[in-house]
Design a protein around this nucleic acid. Structure first.
Lengths: 341, 341
DNA sequence: AGGGAATGGGCAAGCGCGCGA
DNA sequence: ATCGCGCGCTTGCCCATTCCC
């Protein structure tokens, strides 16, 4: 930096101010410094700057890249964080890289706070003093009051799915659940409550599912065998629903005539015009905005109490749900797919 | 750190050595330091350490999280980098965040080299002195000799797809291409060469496609209208192929009886037991290993000449390809899906 | 018994920048 | 607009002790 300053004919201190667009330097010297920096291809040394400032303006994000919801969130995180003057550090959780390793590397990256996407637990090491660090969770974590949580009311989402199906005349509505995946318990509860509310408590059928197509396919096959009278299924998520659709088609059921199917997440896979999956959408954008906001508030005011924010989901009706079939299931599928124009 | 040193009864310098597991301290003082650090919940200040060492042992990775190939690569990157004593900095490229912004933030994160996944260009700012920085590209970049490239021979992949189809008796083989997406040109060339080699140059049909299902669906509809005699299609990638399959089924063609379809990438979407997509697989693992290796070599020996490494792809035959239909296309699809057991 | 290597440990000079005086 | 200190750590250099020829 002193090279830059010399070239611009000012002191290093002034150059520092100019380079950071801080008030102080006159327009003349400001321009001179910027020009000199450009000529010399100079870039500030982040480490030194960080050491001197003792602030990084960096927020860390731990996520599972294999989940489309997380990937979608990333884009919003960048937007919101950058608008608030923060940079973003990403760290992936994978099958071979547990959450605590991900957060560990974020801390090493000297971030000032951590956003955890979609995990249901928070590493204790983050919350215990003296290493305490602001944490926000975007997703379903048990809220203990020592971090912020921003999530969707999954139970409401599934209840609205039940409502929708009931309004179409369905009664034998099953649920392919998500086992112990993130948010699965809540959705299961929403299903049970929704069914009971419509006095369909006797027809409850929960089939163990999972979070991918394979799981949905397997669960679907089992479901159709055990409860062949089922006319509608609410699945843990969209991938799972796609598997369920495949199971139904394999069994000779058209969708939605023979079987109505609802997913959860409004993921890209369900959005294609071909599939047109009816699904429960989370407001990824708002969720992300709020969680990043909360995290930044927690960074800038460590005394601030932590909150849990629950947003309502929204049912998106597309073409995998339709009126309950009056008679027995259709068992043929013709060339003209009725889902399509 | 001096607190730790005091508590352990040694000097800060010795504590530094002990904390970094460097030779010097006796086993006794080493243990004392580690114990003291643990008691105090001490963590080294990365910024200060970095400033003093002037090395970060960090490699930056710029990628597009919406592409499954990139996501798959991440896992391997972590493995290889960590094995070589490097940490990883991730930076996403999205529709609103161009590559140069991603690499910019990696540089700010003080990484020592950058791995660019699947983009076909390298920001000039990375290569021009005096900011020059080691760069490796995992994917199809025009190799200029000023960075390393590790990629798959896409043309060979598509040629082997053509070979496979020809061996099944197909001649009217079309290609739904990837437009100007990464690697599309090479795959298109492989198609043309493969067809010519089998003296099928007259039957060339290239349909403008893209990289997602929507593109594949649209391209498929057009293709079936313009070249209804087509019996096999090689698609730019798996998502595109899924769209193509949907277009075929909508037109009343069963797969593979009425139409054989091949994808590219061996992505999760095609791997499900239901789809069983025949596809050209890249060796993601090897590609990643080599590219990270090359990058690290470039960091540790800046004088090293840059290389281009081209790996062969591998055709994975599953159930969306079959013998060419002898007569006209089948136009019905029954309940019993012949793809399935 | 004396000299030299080997070993464990301390001292202090920065690293490049930001900020208060 | 400048001066100069200090952020927390690393590292080269030097000192002290021990052990061995």
């Amino acid at each position: 930096m002193s090279d830059v300053a010399r070239r611009a004919g000012v002191s290093p201190a002034l150059a520092s101010l100019a380079l950071r667009h801080k008030p102080g330097p006159s327009p003349t010297s400001r321009k001179a410094v910027l020009q000199a920096a450009d000529d010399l291809g100079y870039r500030v040394n982040t480490a030194a700057s960080l050491l001197a400032k003792n602030r990084s303006h960096l927020i860390g994000v731990a996520l599972d890249l294999s989940q489309s919801f997380h990937v979608e969130a990333v884009d919003h995180v960048y937007r919101v964080a950058e608008a608030a003057g923060y940079n973003v550090l990403l760290s992936a959780v994978t099958s071979s890289r547990p959450l605590d390793r991900a957060t560990e590397s974020l801390i090493e990256g000297s971030c000032e706070g951590i956003l955890i996407v979609g995990m249901h637990s928070v590493p204790e090491s983050l919350l215990g003093s003296p290493t305490r660090m602001p944490v926000a969770v975007l997703g379903h974590a048990e809220w203990t009051g020592s971090f912020d949580v921003v999530r969707t009311a999954g139970d409401l989402g599934v209840r609205s799915a039940v409502d929708h199906l009931v309004s179409l005349g369905h009664t034998r509505i099953a649920h392919v659940d998500g086992g112990d995946n993130s948010g699965a318990e809540e959705r299961r509860r929403g299903y049970v409550e929704g069914m009971r509310e419509h006095a369909l408590g006797d027809l409850l059928h929960i089939q163990r599912g999972g979070n991918d197509e394979e799981d949905g396919l397997r669960a679907g096959r089992e479901l159709l065998e055990r409860a062949p009278a089922t006319t509608a299924v609410i699945c843990y998520n969209d991938s799972c629903a796609v598997g369920m659709i495949q199971a139904a088609e394999q069994a000779g059921l058209t969708v939605p005539e023979g079987m109505s199917i609802i997913g959860y997440d409004n993921s890209p896979v369900g959005r294609t015009s071909y599939l047109g999956l009816t699904t429960v959408a989370q407001d990824t954008r708002r969720l992300t905005e709020i969680s990043v906001q909360r995290l930044i508030e927690g960074i800038e005011n460590p005394a601030r109490p932590h909150t849990e924010t629950v947003l309502p989901p929204r049912l998106i009706t597309r073409s995998t749900t339709g009126p309950a079939r009056p008679g027995p299931a259709a068992i043929t599928r013709g060339a003209a797919d009725p889902r399509l124009p």
